[in-house]
Computed example of a mutant assay.
Amino acid sequence: MSTTAAPQPWSPPRSASTGRSWSPVALGAAWGQLVALGVLYVVCVRTAPGQREENRLHSLALENRGSETGWLRTAFDLVDRLQPQHLVLGVAVVGLVGLVRGRFGAAVRGVVVAAGTLGLTELLKLVLLERPNLLEHGSAANSLPSGHTSAVLGLALGLLVAGPRWLRLPLALAGAVAAGAMGAFVIADGWHRVSDVLASALVGSIVLCLVQVVPHRGERRRAALVRLALVVPGAAAAALVVVYAGGAPLTTSYLVAGAVVALTVLTAAQALPREVRGRA
């Protein structure tokens, strides 16, 4: 008499987990990047050598301000005209994308990522962090993280969360270009220092991971979350080595910082949960 084995219940692969419970992996990813953000702040802002290198590039940017011509000058003038209401409109668009798809949960998470990235940035910059005057001609005004970079980065990440999976690639590419360009711009035009932009990349990644901590319907990618938590701090550290330890010129510095922000968007797109059909 032959017997057949009872069918085994389906379980997700090891690299993924269902989103119906709290995610310690996402929490660990956020925590690790928060530590990296603290290290970045201490090295670049709380030490005299860090401030000296940052001020060197910042002074060059201020000296070259307004020297751009052609399409680059047009782009800079466009960024100059950005106002807070443009950000509010962008956050509303993020929520609308999720609602049009009938995904209320995705709409809420997208709005939280978009608004939370800028909100955490402003909290850190204006309330929690300070820039001590460690040099004779140093500035005591804290500028870390960059609000403009975080605003565009948050919108890019929010759209990825709220948008459909089949649009993730074009949204990721467009978001990487926009956020990376903003990160490069604020350094090139003397608005921010390199560490400010790198800190914005970390803030955006932290908020994205925190949103994935809470239970939701979907299939988390644990391996991709870990990769995100390693890539963004690693890229930021490499950028500091190139820019400060390597004595990079201004052009190289803002291109490298912008590339880290762009890489954050691309890596985050791969770490987003797989949607379960018919569920938010």
Rank of each mutant, 00 (worst) to 15 (best):
240 L>F: 09
248 A>I: 08
18 T>H: 11
192 H>A: 06
115 A>R: 03
127 V>H: 12
196 D>P: 05
127 V>I: 08
125 K>F: 10
124 L>T: 07
213 V>A: 09
83 Q>Y: 07
18 T>D: 10
148 H>K: 02
255 L>N: 06
48 A>W: 09
186 V>D: 12
144 L>E: 03
110 G>M: 08
76 F>S: 12
192 H>K: 06
242 V>Y: 12
6 A>F: 00
15 S>G: 14
35 V>D: 06
115 A>K: 01
2 S>K: 03
172 A>S: 13
146 S>A: 14
192 H>E: 07
203 V>G: 06
89 L>V: 15
73 R>Q: 14
100 V>E: 11
226 V>W: 13
37 L>C: 04
13 P>I: 08
152 V>G: 08
117 T>N: 08
104 F>H: 13
134 L>D: 04
18 T>L: 15
254 Y>K: 05
257 A>W: 05
110 G>W: 03
208 L>K: 02
22 W>P: 02
185 F>V: 09
135 L>Y: 08
260 V>A: 09
108 V>C: 11
78 L>I: 07
253 S>G: 12
220 R>Y: 08
54 E>D: 09
278 G>Y: 01
3 T>H: 10
10 W>G: 00
14 R>E: 14
278 G>I: 11
153 L>C: 08
25 V>A: 11
275 E>D: 14
206 I>L: 06
21 S>A: 15
28 G>T: 01
131 R>M: 09
161 V>T: 14
38 G>N: 02
77 D>A: 14
83 Q>C: 00
176 A>H: 04
261 V>F: 13
265 V>W: 00
144 L>W: 12
92 A>Y: 01
131 R>T: 03
99 L>T: 12
254 Y>G: 07
10 W>V: 03
224 A>N: 03
42 V>G: 10
242 V>I: 15
95 G>C: 05
168 R>S: 11
143 S>Q: 13
16 A>N: 03
184 A>S: 15
131 R>H: 06
14 R>F: 12
270 Q>V: 13
134 L>F: 05
120 L>M: 09
15 S>N: 10
262 A>W: 05
43 V>R: 10
219 E>S: 10
279 R>Q: 14
5 A>K: 01
57 L>D: 05
3 T>C: 02
86 H>Q: 06
190 G>R: 00
255 L>M: 11
114 A>G: 09
198 L>M: 04
26 A>P: 10
277 R>C: 00
53 E>T: 07
24 P>D: 07
131 R>K: 06
185 F>G: 00
107 A>P: 03
255 L>Y: 07
267 T>L: 02
43 V>P: 02
193 R>K: 13
244 Y>N: 13
171 L>Y: 01
152 V>L: 13
241 V>D: 05
136 E>L: 13
106 A>V: 07
202 L>S: 03
131 R>L: 12
263 L>R: 03
89 L>W: 11
209 C>H: 04
135 L>D: 08
176 A>L: 10
251 T>D: 15
160 L>R: 01
173 L>P: 02
223 A>N: 01
46 R>D: 09
